[in-house]
C-alpha cells in the first residue's frame, strides 16, 4: 500500500510542486528573501522541490541530490529556516494532496491490502512522516556540521591569536594582550609566557595590556600569577599599557600590583627594560657633526 501511495505522490509531483511553491512563496517575506531577485528565488525553489522528490524516490543513498543542494545553500549563506520551512510546507502539501485524492485511490490490488476505513488519516500522516523526516534530519545535520566546522576553525584561530610572544631584542620579550581575558585564556597566556621566556632566554618580559578592555579582580589575579611565575623561573616582568581608567579600577578594587613594576606605555616600559639589562639608547650624533663640518668647509671655500 505504501508503494501505491508513493507512486501517486511521484506521479503527481507537478501538482504537488505547484501547491508547494505557492505556499512557500507566502512564507518568504523576510528581509533575506527581499534582497534576492524573484528569478533566483524561483529557481532555487524549483531546485529544492526536485531535490526533495529525488530524495523520496531514491530513499537513503550515500550522496543524495538533497545533500548537494544543502551544501550549495550553505556556501551561498542561505538560512536554515529556508530548508526547514520548505520541508514543513512540503509535508503539509503532500498530506493535503493525498487526502484530497483519497477517494480516487484504489488499494484493492495492493500486496498487503488491509481495510483502513475512516481511520486512514493517521496512517497517511505516518507514511508521509516516514519519507520526510529522514530528509529533514539529513539537512539539519548537514547545516549543523558546517557550523561546528566553522566554530572549531574560529576557536583554533582564536587560540593562535590569544598569546603571541615577540622577542624584540636579546633578552627582552613583549607579550601584547588584546581582548578580554578569561580563565582559559589566562592559562594559555601563562603557559606561552613561561615557555617563551625559557625559549628566548628573556631577562625581561613586557606584558602589554593596552588592548585589554576591562581589568577586573579576576584578570588582575591572573596577571599577578603570571608575573610571579615569571619571577620564579628567573626573569622579570613589567606590566605596561595601563590606561588611566584601568589605573582607577585597579586602585578602586584594592588590587595590589606593587610587587612588580608598571608603566603607562610600552615605550616607557621598554626603556625600563633596557635599564634593567644594562643597556641604553644612544643617538648617533657623529653624522650630523660631519655634515656641519662639510657645510662649514664649503662656506669657507666660498669666502676665499
Amino acid at each position: 500500500m505504501e508503494k501505491i501511495l508513493k507512486d501517486v505522490v511521484l506521479d503527481n509531483s507537478d501538482e504537488i510542486v505547484r501547491m508547494w511553491i505557492e505556499q512557500v512563496k507566502k512564507n518568504q517575506g523576510g528581509a533575506f528573501y527581499q534582497s534576492l531577485s524573484d528569478e533566483a528565488l524561483e529557481n532555487t525553489n524549483r531546485e529544492f522541490a526536485n531535490a526533495i522528490f529525488e530524495g523520496i524516490q531514491k530513499g537513503k543513498i550515500a550522496k543524495t541530490p538533497l545533500d548537494e543542494f544543502a551544501e550549495k545553500l550553505i556556501n551561498l549563506g542561505w538560512p536554515l529556516t529556508y530548508l526547514t520551512d520548505g520541508m514543513q510546507v512540503f509535508r503539509r502539501s503532500v498530506v493535503k494532496f493525498i487526502i484530497h485524492k483519497w477517494e480516487d485511490l484504489d488499494f484493492s490490488e495492493a500486496d498487503n491490502y488491509f481495510e483502513l476505513g475512516d481511520d486512514y488519516f493517521p496512517w497517511v500522516l505516518e507514511k508521509v512522516d516516514e519519507w520526510v523526516d529522514p530528509l529533514v534530519n539529513e539537512l539539519v545535520s548537514e547545516y549543523s556540521g558546517s557550523w561546528e566546522n566553522i566554530v572549531s576553525l574560529q576557536r583554533m584561530a582564536l587560540q593562535e591569536l590569544s598569546a603571541p610572544l615577540i622577542p624584540v631584542m636579546d633578552n627582552i620579550t613583549i607579550m601584547p594582550l588584546i581582548g578580554t581575558i578569561d580563565t582559559e585564556r589566562a592559562k594559555m597566556v601563562m603557559e606561552s609566557l613561561l615557555d617563551g621566556v625559557i625559549k628566548h632566554n628573556a631577562e625581561v618580559v613586557l606584558i602589554d595590556i593596552t588592548g585589554v578592555p576591562v581589568v577586573d579582580t579576576m584578570v588582575a589575579h591572573h596577571i599577578i600569577q603570571a608575573a610571579e611565575a615569571v619571577r620564579l623561573i628567573g626573569s622579570r616582568c613589567i606590566l605596561v599599557g595601563i590606561r588611566p581608567e584601568i589605573a582607577q579600577t585597579i586602585v578602586n578594587l584594592g588590587i595590589d600590583l606593587g610587587k612588580f613594576p608598571t608603566k603607562s606605555s610600552l615605550r616607557k616600559g621598554f626603556q625600563t627594560a633596557l635599564e634593567l639589562t644594562n643597556r641604553e639608547i644612544v643617538e648617533d650624533t657623529n653624522r650630523e657633526e660631519e655634515i656641519e663640518n662639510l657645510i662649514e668647509s664649503l662656506d669657507r671655500s666660498e669666502e676665499e
Binding site: E191, L194, D195, V197, I198, E228, A229, L232, I233, G234
Partner: peptide, 19 residues
Amino acid sequence: LTGIQPAVAVTLIDLGIHL
C-alpha cells in the same frame, strides 16, 4: 635559584608558594 621549569613555577604559584 636557577632554571625553575615553567611547569614547576605554575605548580608553586597554584600552591600559593611565591618564594
